[in-house]
């Protein structure tokens, strides 16, 4: 690999994760340079190499310009991309994952700063869903009793909500959730979140921390980008009021 080359990890619909070299992409005069940035959708043509493929043409189909205008948006987008990389595999189609990433990057690019935690958490939950490891949020993972409009506990190892009456007898680490947090978790299974719920950034940041631990537990990896997100939302100014569910 030359000094001006870029080694890229690309998520494709057709072949899953592909690692490829973009020759001379770092040079100011490179025609390919601007097209192969992070979080840009391209129509790529690649040579099949012995070890690594080589990109020789790129046509930009879509970029998410709104992301770079704000640090918290950039943090959320990189967080989502990192989570997607945990799930993505090489050598097999990843259409659902690809479309999910695009949909949620679009939503992050258009979201206001207050809406970002909601948009991110929804994207993470949907990612867990297509991975087949989404937490159970409608019934108790111990007794299987439906949970609705009530406080409950959450077990990362147990895979979701645990009814309060089962919490005492279980030998697992549980986190107590109030009625609003349980309600918010149950909203995540829908294709989109109700508009009013987008503004509950304090509530969603709490859910994000819970889902982050859940995601890291299931994929056995750390989400590095989460540190930047924490930095962006540590100030109370980013927080909005607590909702009534």
């Amino acid at each position: 690999m030359g000094e001006a080359d870029w080694l890229m990890t690309i998520l494709t619909r057709e072949y899953g994760l592909v690692r490829a070299i973009a020759k001379g992409a770092r040079k100011a005069t490179a025609r390919i340079g601007g097209r192969i940035e992070l979080l840009v959708v391209n129509d790529l043509q690649l040579y099949k190499g012995r070890n690594l493929d080589q990109i020789f043409q790129a046509d930009c189909l879509r970029s998410f310009r709104g992301l770079s205008a704000e640090l918290s948006r950039l943090a959320a987008a990189q967080y989502l991309a990192e989570a997607v990389l945990l799930e993505a595999t090489e050598g097999q189609p990843q259409e659902i994952l690809f479309d999910l990433l695009l949909l949620h990057l679009e939503r992050l690019a258009e979201a206001t700063v207050e809406q970002l935690p909601a948009r991110l958490v929804h994207g993470i939950y949907q990612l867990l869903t297509i991975s087949g490891v989404a937490p159970e949020v409608y019934s108790c993972t111990v007794s299987h009793r439906p949970i609705s409009a009530e406080a409950a506990s959450f077990s990362i190892e147990g895979g979701g909500l645990v009814a309060l009456e089962c919490s005492a007898v279980q030998d697992m680490s549980l986190r107590r959730l109030d009625l609003q947090q349980v309600g918010a978790l149950q909203l995540l299974a829908a294709e989109d979140l109700p508009t009013v719920s987008l503004e509950w950034s304090v509530l969603w940041m709490g859910i994000e921390r819970l889902l982050r631990r859940y995601l890291e537990f299931h994929f056995d990896r750390t989400i590095h980008s989460a540190d930047l997100l924490d930095l962006c939302f540590e100030t109370p100014s980013a927080a909005m009021g607590v909702p009534h569910l």
């Binding site: 005069t29 390919i32 097209r35 970029s63 310009r65």
Partner: peptide, 17 residues
């Protein structure tokens, strides 16, 4: 655009910038 560059061959992201 880089000095001496050609609009026709510039990528969309660079032109937008």
């Amino acid at each position: 655009l880089p000095v001496g560059g050609d609009l026709e061959y510039a990528d969309e992201m660079t032109l937008a910038r």
